[in-house]
Amino acid sequence: MAYDPVSGTLKSRSLTLAYEIPVSKIARFWEALAEGKVLATRCKRCGRRMFPPQAACDKCHSEDIEWFEIKGVGEVVAFTHIVVRPASFQTQPVYTPAIAEFEEEGVRVFAWIAPEVPKRQVRVGMKVRVEGRITEDGRRTWVFVPAE
């Protein structure tokens, strides 16, 4: 209860939040990232393809799903370079999220363009592949790398 007469404010108690997010139903996705692979799901009943992967079909609600790898070449349809970063990304250099369309697999993927790719090279229409990675601080993630 720190009262600051200059600003006329009172500093509240602080609270640190970190959630334990259940991912067991889509564990295969997180496992495959360590092998460099990015997986999506397909509904065995209606054929609906889903990325992000889900354990149930968002269209017909069947829970009979199968996994497939996104192996083909995709095309960047939108991107941005994030300069003003959120609190938990303050130590990260400027990063480049993008959306790429993988026509062959019938899905779109959201990810960073790999940090080693020069920013000038990034444009709408750029051809990319997606690959799983483990970051230096041990997080499982996926990035786009140039396909040509």
Binding site: I21, P52, I82, V84, A87, F89, Y95, F110, A111
Partner: peptide
């Protein structure tokens, strides 16, 4: 910026990728 950025799909767009709200609209701008 973080609290607004987490709005959307936290696990698939923020956890690894730190997408911010200006970022969401910047994607549409490009």
């Amino acid at each position: 910026v973080e609290l607004i950025g987490r709005a959307g799909s936290y696990l698939w767009e923020f956890e690894n990728f730190g997408l911010t709200f200006p970022g969401y609209y910047a994607l549409h701008a490009t």
